[in-house]
Design a protein around this nucleic acid. Structure first.
Lengths: 239, 239
DNA sequence: GCAATAGTGTCTTTCAGACAGTATGAC
DNA sequence: GTCATACTGTCTGAAAGACACTATTGC
């Protein structure tokens, strides 16, 4: 008991805090950018929508915690999902329970054919990003930051392929850009840029027939991760 | 006592951790990129060089903590210094004292005429980035990440002006790019790009005479923060 | 005048932006 | 053949990359 109190005192002096990993999981469904939300089952904010997340455990990194949440929520092999740190949110008053800081992560998932049915989160659902509001804690802010990060990554990296399934058409990839950026993209110039950038996509040789029209050639992600020179937005935001 | 134990138990379950804010303060001195290091006065790593940093206090954000350290270490009005989050480092074994995660910050300082004499850090000194090694904890890794971030920011933002004093010449600004990137930059094309980018720099009309040669026109930072289109590195790293 | 540094002009090439036409499937 | 979608070709203008020349100071 004595040692426990000593440890406690030390942690108090150094402002021990609890740390969560919160996830912004984005995907494109039906030509719309969606984010995965859960319904909070406990106070505070019971019943409010929120970003999925959880407390950091003693023997894991924050990346481990985030990936654990990600597999729980999406039921997918998480190695194939893109996951990166966004930033830390540490306002002392951001959590009514006390001092809890959160490390937000940006995750990108391909459009899943089956709806999400996580084992843990009872009421997980995809929601359109452009209509989401009133999230618990400071999650509205975190979501906005995550979407902005994704938009910038589409310019400078091959992140858009993370939204797609293993095999995809150039048209599907272009649709990702249009949905995330919110601006139309010229198909001809887009084709030229994508196929002309070394390592962005590689052709599989196969084709995908649809009900009507010419079948499209299927591609896979290439080894490249950065786009250099970047793919610039036609109508970009002045900041 | 009882309530204290309950709080303690809750924190244990939720893996309460201590959090530090560590700073990578970069500057350019004598045509070389330098980082501010302190000598550790306590175990662990007593006597080893390390990045300046400190524990998060109960009623401040991590940005507050970082800015507090920054003013202590540089003795400058910190509002004028660039400061941004880098990322979180949360390996469970990164600190021998127990569970301590760190939020690393990137700070940029102009070349200071006076050497650093912080009130707190007894042995703070500028060290050339290219020869730094053997830092305490995982600070070697953090430093490397920070330098890479700075290099990328020079391409996409007006961060380079943060390395300069209030008034600076185009040649001084160009020197920042050359030192941070480690590649020569063509003075003529650089001039065209900088003066042609709206809001990057604004002329003061004044000039600075030196021992010899034509005096250079002095500029100040403009209101722009992002470079669009970006300034691309002549010799860039393939990744 | 010379030396030393600051700044401008011009050519070329590459690539984004804009637009019209051809190709390949199902029926 | 028609319809619908996938893909290619070409022109133009803006800007990066490569280069040589002029300008302004101190001596």
């Amino acid at each position: 008991l004595c040692s426990l109190l000593i440890v406690t005192a030390m942690e108090r002096k150094h402002a021990a805090v609890r740390v969560t990993a919160d996830l912004v999981i984005l995907t494109v469904r039906r030509e719309q950018l969606h984010v995965l939300l859960v319904e909070r089952g406990n106070d505070p904010f019971r019943g409010s929508p929120a970003l999925p997340g959880g407390f950091l455990r003693p023997d894991e990194t924050l990346e481990d915690a985030a990936r654990r949440e990600l597999t729980e929520e999406t039921n997918m092999a998480s190695e194939r999902l893109h996951l990166e740190q966004l930033r830390v949110y540490s306002d002392p008053d951001r959590d009514p329970r006390g001092r809890v800081i959160t490390v937000a992560f940006l995750a990108i998932a391909p459009s899943l054919p089956v709806p999400v049915a996580g084992s843990d989160a009872s009421a997980a659902r995809w929601e359109r990003v452009d209509v989401v509001t009133g999230l618990a804690f400071d999650h509205d802010r975190i979501l906005a930051d995550a979407v902005e990060r994704a938009r910038q990554h589409l310019e400078n990296t091959t992140l858009a392929t993370a939204f797609c399934a293993d095999a995809f058409t150039i048209g599907e990839l272009r649709n990702i850009y249009e949905v995330v950026w919110g601006v139309p993209v010229d198909p001809r110039n887009f084709n030229r840029k994508v196929t002309g950038t070394e390592g962005f996509v590689v052709s599989t040789g196969e084709k995908r027939s649809q009900e009507t029209g010419r079948p499209a050639v299927l591609y896979r992600r290439g080894p490249a991760t950065v786009l250099y020179p970047p793919m610039l937005r036609a109508n970009f935001l002045r900041r």
